[in-house]
Amino acid sequence: MSRSPSLGAIANVKNPQRKQRRSFNQISAKLAPYGFLTPFIVLFFVFSVFGFVFSLYLSFHQWNPVAGMASMRFVGFENYTFSLGEPDFYKSLYNTIWLGLASGLSQHLVAIPMAYLLVSLGSKFRHFMTSAFFLPFITSTVAVSLIFVNMYSANVGIINKAIVALVNLPVINWFMDWVNAFMPLRWLEDRTLIKPAIAILQFWKFVGFHLVIYISGILTLSKEVEEAAILDGANWRQRFWHVALPHLRPFIFFGVTLTIIGSLQMFEEPFIITNGTGGIGNSGLTISMFLYKVAWEWLDMGWASAMSWLLFLIIAAVTAVQFFVFGKKGLGEH
């Protein structure tokens, strides 16, 4: 539909002052969004882009921060080659992947069927259980980790006390008595137990978050599809495998992506559990902890930056593999 020039427009032609005001208004209208965006853009550049670019710049330099900016010296790829020759880089990477797989996989393997079960049990029970499982996620990581340190304590910790009480129950004791020979378990002082100790904490903290995602996903499944499956004679297990699970694929994709990124950046829990040391034989040292140690304790910012970029490349590669494996189906496209 075409429009004839308005009276106002005609008046503008005749009145240059009014025209000028209008063009000013037009410019203002165009600039206004940028004005509103400016605070974000400034903060984004100062706190994100600058840090990003500066760490890349640093990774090609040797720099002890305490000696000031003037002490920075260009060293090319030396920090990268040095990182790749460092035994603890590989050890911390292995630990990180181990922890990511152990806690990450178990979170999803538990959260998916549990979400389906909670949805099946009705809204009242579901709301209560979801809140209970979600609570650890919103609790302070530092506080939770400190509590777990106490719980893992070999002689006075509640976990060992519970295990001892359990295996010494009348019937259980007949076939679990051998466990007493291994007590007390030294969760935080034993190379083989420290990773499971961290993974259990991670699982406890994050399983509720994934549960909420999967419950939301199952609730988007239309009643008709569910009812059709029931009419076709599908039982509970079949409906889970052949109806709910395929429907959850994009949610699983989203959850697994978050787990991969989060796991590879794991820092606070192992840092507190191992008192910042990485544990016996560095068996609880994650890659984020190692680069923190290099940067802030050993004051080698260039090396730490190079490792953080290597970590970035690893995260990007693993995420890309995941995209490749899930393909478009992962994003809910067919």
Binding site: S153, N155, G157, E189, N275
Partner: peptide, 13 residues
């Protein structure tokens, strides 16, 4: 030794 480090809960105890 008791096999617990300084500043651990067992150490305090």
């Amino acid at each position: 030794d008791g096999r617990f480090g300084d500043w651990s809960s067992e150490w305090f105890e």
